[in-house]
Amino acid sequence: MVSGVMQRPPQPGPRQTPPAIPNHRLGMIIFLVAETMLFTGLLGGYLVLRLAAPMWPPAGQPQLPFWAGAANLAFLAAGSLGIHVALRAARRASHHGVLRGISLALASGTAFLAVLGIEWARLRSAGLSLSSGGTYGALFYALTGCHALHLLAVWIWIAVLLLMAVRDRFSPAHHEPVEMAGMFWHFVTLAWLFLFVILYVL
């Protein structure tokens, strides 16, 4: 039996406007706020111990190499630039631009980790270790180690992005992973700027 009821064509619903702040960006902002408080706590502990100490660095302990901190700051800034270039290229659908930007960020991150590793080895051979350096050594390794873990995380993230970029997975409509990795990278750069000033300059 054939029903005599005709099916209505689907009616267009009310036009949906995009949210003022996309969910992925809001989530990343909340995450970065929490991360900022982590570094603030670490820096607060560092300031208490450093300002209360009669002499800094303590007698017999090596001075932190300024050049290493400055070089690392330059590497992170270059990585920030690379991610920015990649994001702009993804918005313009430039496949080569995305690859170039992400490769630059990845190389910068590798250079940062290499310089930090060399610096740790040099300081360790100069007598600065977690146990022998007292609070000086412990604070230095805790702050730079925590930062290096963050950079390692974003480095792995960007390596995955590079694989995705090789397969041309990004487009002007879909580039959120690059944007979020960029936000995290900029945060890591900013955190190093503060660490550099407090640890190496002051």
Partner: peptide
Amino acid sequence: GQFAFSKSTLMMLSVPYLLLGGVALYVVRA
């Protein structure tokens, strides 16, 4: 430790307010 504690407390106290202000500004602008 008085000087060290007060400076450190001041720094740690200011950051949440700066973050809150920055995020609020961003949300309002968005």
